[in-house]
Design a protein around this nucleic acid. Structure first.
Length: 482
RNA sequence: GUCCCCAUCGUCUAGCCUGGCCUAGGACACCGCCCUUUCGAGGCGGCGACCGGGGUUCGAAUCCCCGUGGGGACGCCA
């Protein structure tokens, strides 16, 4: 697809969990890197000390790895372009802010946040065109600046944005985007605390980390002109931009915690498989160019091109995810499933001491379960005899007419060999001897063995439960009749 | 409010760039039938969309303009 050395990055800020929107952004970056033979980097944008959350990093790493999105360079991984954590790169930002100052592309601003709030409020009250800084300090004389500094006034460094003209950039998914420059205000680049803002830090890092393509959420479109200005001021070549459409909640608006489970780990807990979530996410705003929907990661990488990325936002359809998960469940490695399911069974108070037996159960249930949690919720009777029977079902199935059949099976089952053909034959023989249809007694057997209505194939369950257990349960059920 | 982005079934989308092959294709969900001892799966079928208005053209879902609707940005947050 691309012969140049593609380098892309996912750059979350450690302010909380990784939500599915972020995961989708990470995924597209990952896919682009893999499809072009490039590198996928992870960079932590922790320049806001007030929003920093200690556990966040761990959660982000865990989420990405669970999905299989391992980074080529980044924290815990290393690489030649580190450090990959912005709080460890402060010198670089300061140095470059100074360069901007020296070159006349930036200036020191001494306005307090109180004054800024005031200005904002006044503008709002006057319903002025748009917000933004009023540029009060833009033209302070060197003498005034020095005086303020000597007076110990804290300052920020602001971008000296041009006053007229337009700024245009090419977006890989949308084409040319042009903005009148009066919409770009004199953004803060360096905060009073000496930390850079996103705008400064990301531009510097993307340059020095030799990022070739910036794929990020489209909430950044409006800020991109600033970034273009910064690249120009530094005399650097800007990377190619690709702004990904947002993911919306089914109720409208941006997907968030308030509107259903939005974190990747919530989906794990909810019983979803990483492969399914990944597949589903890949189809939100992208398609392989044909009718395929079930694609594994290799197939997605193989088919991935930026050209097929859509520019319109999409709604996160949980029902479709569920269906897709069910598709993956069907053929999933039961041993892997067991690792997830056994703890869940234990949580329900079940005794699960035989892994092979548990795997046998999972094989029976996985084809009819949409989520991992569903296996856990519907398999109780494989580990404990039913204590009671579904009332409605019992009234219908446990009749005087079937009692003799159950008794006869209790008598005959112990002596047959325990395989599908023999069991089936035995049931048929009993039915015939009593001049009944086997279709009449099978539902009763199902109820006897499970205590509930649905479930896997009857005989498969018998074999899984074992001869003794099956006979015992039928006998117990038979005793409740009459 | 200003600027930017977006607009095909309820939802994800194909088609749009390079107008005619589109009486608009697929998938989820929903409904019906078949299969089945049950549930699920599966098979078959049904319902269901080009936001509106103008243009351009022999011809527009596809190109242009204007509306309308939705989203985003306007922070010493990212």
């Amino acid at each position: 697809m691309n012969t140049e050395n593609v380098r892309v990055r996912f750059a979350p800020s450690p302010t909380g969990y990784l939500h599915v929107g972020g995961a989708r952004t990470a995924l597209f970056n990952y896919l682009y890197a893999k499809a072009t033979g490039g590198k996928f980097l992870l960079r932590i944008e922790d320049t806001d000390r007030t929003r920093f959350q200690e556990d966040s990093l761990k959660e982000i790493f865990e989420s990405l790895r669970w999905l299989g999105l391992e980074w080529d360079e980044g924290p815990e991984k290393g690489g030649d372009f580190g450090p990959y954590i912005q709080s460890e790169r402060l010198d670089k930002y300061n140095e470059h802010a100074q360069m901007l100052l020296d070159g006349g592309h930036a200036y020191k601003c001494f306005c307090t946040s109180e004054r800024l709030d005031q200005v904002r409020k006044e503008k709002e009250a006057r319903k002025e065109q748009h917000g933004g800084y009023d540029r009060k300090c833009r033209d302070l004389s060197p003498v005034e600046v020095q005086a303020n500094i000597d007076a110990g006034m804290p300052f920020v460094v602001r971008l000296k944005a041009p006053l007229e003209g337009t700024i245009a950039f090419e977006d890989m998914v949308r084409g040319t985007i042009e903005t009148p420059v009066n919409m770009v205000d004199d953004t803060v680049l360096l905060k009073t605390d000496g930390f850079p803002t996103y705008h400064l830090a990301s531009v510097i890092d993307d340059h020095f980390m030799e990022i070739t393509h910036v794929m990020r959420g489209d909430e950044w479109i409006a800020s991109t002109p600033r970034h273009v200005l910064l690249y120009k001021a530094f005399g650097w070549e800007a990377p190619v931009f690709a702004h990904l459409p947002v993911i919306l909640s089914p109720t409208g608006g941006k997907l968030s915690k308030r509107k259903g489970a939005a974190s990747v780990m919530d989906y794990k807990k909810g019983g979803y498989l990483p492969e399914a979530l990944l597949n589903f996410l890949s189809l939100l705003g992208w398609n392989p160019g044909d009718d395929r929907e079930l694609l594994n990661i290799e197939e997605i990488i193989e088919a991935f091109t930026a050209k097929k990325i859509s520019s319109k936002p999409s709604v996160f359809d949980e029902q479709k995810l569920e269906w897709m998960n069910g598709q993956y469940m069907e053929n999933y490695d039961p041993a892997k499933l067991a690792e997830e399911v056994i703890p869940l069974w234990k949580d329900r108070g079940l005794t699960v001491d035989n892994v092979d037996y548990a795997i046998g159960v999972i094989k029976l249930l996985q084809v009819r379960s949409k989520k991992v949690t569903e296996i856990a919720e519907t398999g109780d009777f494989f580990f404990a005899d039913p204590i009671e029977y579904n009332e409605k079902q019992a009234a219908k199935q446990f009749t005087e007419a079937v009692k003799p059949a159950l008794e006869k099976l209790v008598a005959d089952f112990p002596s047959i060999s325990w395989n599908k053909e023999a069991i089936e034959a035995c049931i048929e023989a009993v039915a015939e001897s009593l001049e009944m249809k086997s279709g009449k007694i099978k539902p009763a057997l199902r109820l006897a063995v499970t205590g509930v209505g649905g479930g896997p194939d009857l005989i498969d369950m018998f074999i899984q439960l074992g001869q003794d257990c099956t006979v015992r349960r039928i006998k117990n059920a038979s005793n409740t009749i009459g």
